[in-house]
Computed example of a mutant assay.
Amino acid sequence: MKVSIDTDRCRGFGVCVSLCPEVFVLTDYGYSEVAVEEVPPGLEEAVAEAAEACPERAIECN
């Protein structure tokens, strides 16, 4: 699974980081970014949950 964040939509709520810190991190400016190129096995469900919980719907999984 690959995941990306639309940086134009992200507002830095950090919900994704709190739900899956193994994949998402905050930048120095307080916005989320993806820390890995490929979602590790076993974390797909957490990434999907983070995408669903994102208030701005800025996370895309495929």
Score class of each variant (00 low, 15 high):
C54M: 03
G30H: 13
R11K: 15
E49Q: 15
A53D: 06
A50D: 05
R11P: 01
E52S: 05
V34A: 00
C20I: 06
E60F: 14
E60T: 14
R9N: 06
A53Q: 07
V23G: 08
C61M: 08
F13K: 04
L43A: 09
L26S: 09
D28H: 03
E38G: 01
A53Y: 07
E44G: 15
E52Y: 08
V47Q: 01
A46M: 10
A51F: 04
M1C: 07
T27P: 05
P40H: 13
V47R: 00
P41T: 02
P40L: 08
A53P: 04
E37N: 07
I59E: 04
D28C: 02
V34W: 05
A53W: 10
G12W: 12
I59S: 05
S18I: 04
E38Y: 07
S32A: 15
L19R: 05
L19N: 02
V17N: 06
S4F: 04
V3N: 07
R57E: 15
E22Q: 14
F24C: 01
F13E: 07
F24N: 04
C20F: 12
A51L: 03
T27H: 03
E52M: 03
L43K: 09
G12Q: 13
R9P: 03
V25E: 13
V34F: 06
K2G: 01
V47G: 02
E22W: 05
P40K: 10
C54H: 06
A48F: 10
L43F: 11
E49D: 15
L19K: 06
V23P: 10
A35E: 15
E37Y: 03
V36N: 01
V15A: 13
E45D: 14
E38H: 07
D6Q: 06
V36G: 02
E37C: 01
T27W: 08
E37A: 13
V23H: 11
D6T: 07
R11A: 14
L43M: 11
E38T: 12
V39D: 02
G42T: 12
